[in-house]
Design a protein around this nucleic acid. Structure first.
Length: 492
RNA sequence: GCCCCCAUCGUCUAGAGGCCUAGGACGGCGGCCUUUCAAGCCGUAAACAUGGAUUCGAAUUCCAUUGGGGGCACCA
């Protein structure tokens, strides 16, 4: 095996690719980069009915967002194109014809209705389902009659009735199938389009694909492909089937498990480096402890031998944690930049746009270790942006602090703070600690009351930094509002 | 029904016969730090599906069983 490594990601354009598909693309890409091989993007658009508008764009956008650049494929071209199967029909038709001529395939005129009835009956009698080879040995006259009737045939592969097909999968090891349980599958549909089986075999061969990396669901159709390679006289590629990502019910991940498209994760505020790292780790590990890895580290250390065989659950809690780790690793400027569109989208409409980047930059250090996604920021930092706060009176009091104390503290704070000329952290701290002492309350009690007054929250970034960013004017306004809120509350 | 694949803490995993009284991470719990919330740090509970076989010795090998997943389309 001295052939250069060429791997392909071959999605069909039926929607936004979900994390499972994309993980396959990642393994392709990582393996290609690790070996210095080529990563090819090929579009399997042979099902006219399932093709979806915008799907191709979503595929490319997903790959680009994760930084998976392809060496050949749409937009970039390549020596083995075209890279859309719908533009390669002739190739498949020629291959099918060749197999018919060689006696490895035949035309089938069975109607969908007959096939449907056949399957129903097989199921009812609990028999092995599959085509009954009705057209396998049609006489020339019978064929001519069907043709004359205007029936458009499909081409079926003539599967040997005896023997076994075996192959070595790089992850699953040796796998053996009895040929007798494989039915004569359709290679070429009556509309002239190939099925996946034919198209992928022809393309993988003509595109000189060295390793077929795909999910485990394909394991059971691999023997069909091997049989075709043999009949066509092609050298088969190496197979690397990998386990799938499963949902909470352990079933293969799909739309019904909720938000699973990669781009949805982008929109929820996960970073591409998080997704790359996290997705790699579902089914592959470097060693017994390394978890946070750069793309470079992953590429350098990746090996198929260290991929697992077990379907894995997509653990959202761990994803959140990891995204937090990556967020905290960003510089203030970088994070501010990334946060801007999310703040713009999720902050209440009354907040004036455009947002001030410099102001955001001041806030970022305060919320950085408190958010796990970019989207979290808006809800977390809302009080930094809105004009009017809704104070919840009950938040001012706790076991240690009653309403009386809170009100007194606020009034004293208002007085002393209004005399301050600047609102920097040190000065605020000095002033307020002294005030607490004077009032005979714990510093924390006073801080908490002021926290609620200035933010309307009981969980915020550190008080002095927060107040400093908010600025004197806004703080004083809010403290006054809090005083009247508390006063009114007590009177009523 | 037939065929294929899989099986270590709740979850993701390390483990390729003795290093395992099974390691790490997320989550949980407890603590430290602390003006709240986080972050950080420390600690803790928590798993080899079951039964045989091989071996001086098995999470690691083999065979059953059980459980789970996938396939059996003119879809990929």
């Amino acid at each position: 095996m001295t052939e250069p490594v060429r791997v392909r990601f071959a999605p069909s354009p039926t929607g936004k690719p979900h994390v499972g598909n994309i993980r396959t693309a990642m393994y392709d890409w990582i393996f290609a980069r690790h070996t210095g091989g080529k990563f090819i993007l090929r579009i399997e658009d042979t099902d006219v009915a399932r093709k979806k508008e915008g799907a191709l764009e979503a595929i490319m956008e997903s790959l680009k967002w994760l930084g998976l650049d392809w060496d050949e494929g749409p937009e970039v071209g390549g020596d083995y194109g075209p890279y859309f199967q719908s533009q390669r029909l002739e190739l498949y038709q020629k291959a099918a014809k060749k197999l018919v001529e060689k006696g490895n395939a035949y035309y089938c005129y069975c109607s969908p209705e007959r096939l449907e009835a056949l399957r129903k009956e097989q199921e009812a009698r609990k028999l092995q389902t599959g085509y009954d080879r009705f057209c396998r040995n049609l006489s020339p006259q019978e064929r001519a009659a069907k043709e004359a009737a205007g029936i458009k045939p499909v081409v079926r592969f003539k599967v040997p009735e005896q023997g076994q097909t075996r192959f070595h999968d790089l992850i699953y090891g040796d796998v053996v199938f009895e040929n007798s349980i494989i039915d004569d599958f359709v290679m070429l549909k009556s509309d002239g389009y190939p099925t996946y089986h034919l198209a992928s075999v022809v393309d993988d061969h003509t595109m000189k694909i060295s390793h077929v990396i795909r999910d485990e669901g394909w394991l059971s159709s691999a023997p069909r492909h091997l049989l075709m390679y043999k009949a066509l006289g092609y050298e088969p590629p190496l197979y690397v089937h990998h386990p799938v990502i499963v949902g909470a019910d352990r079933a293969k991940l799909s739309k019904r498990h909720g938000a699973v498209a990669l781009l949805d994760f982008r929109d929820m505020g996960y970073l591409p480096e998080t997704m790359f790292n996290f997705l790699t780790l579902i089914g592959w590990s470097l060693d017994d402890k390394t978890e946070i890895m750069t793309r470079q580290q992953i590429v350098e250390n990746f090996s198929i031998e260290r991929m697992g065989k077990t379907g894995a659950f997509f653990n959202m809690e761990k994803l959140d944690w990891m995204n937090g780790v990556y967020i905290r690793g960003l510089t203030i400027d970088d994070l501010s930049e990334k946060l801007l569109p999310f703040l713009d989208k999720y902050l209440p409409p009354e907040v004036k746009r455009p947002l001030d980047v410099n102001y955001v930059r001041q806030i970022v250090p305060l919320i950085r270790e408190r958010i796990n996604t970019l989207k979290d920021a808006a809800a977390y930092a809302e009080f930094f942006f809105v004009d009017k706060l809704e104070h919840d009176a009950s938040k001012f009091t706790d076991k240690k602090t009653n309403a009386e104390t809170a009100l007194t503290a606020l009034k004293s704070a208002e007085e002393i703070l209004s005399s301050l000329d600047s609102f920097d952290c040190d000065q605020l701290e000095n002033t307020l600690r002294r005030l607490a002492e004077k009032l005979g309350v714990k510093a924390g009690q006073l801080f908490n009351v002021l926290r609620v007054a200035t933010t309307a929250r009981d969980a915020t970034p550190p008080l002095f930094e927060t107040m400093a960013v908010l600025g004197k004017e806004r703080c004083m306004k809010r403290i006054k509002a809090a005083i009247s809120r508390l006063g009114n509350n007590r009177d009523s």
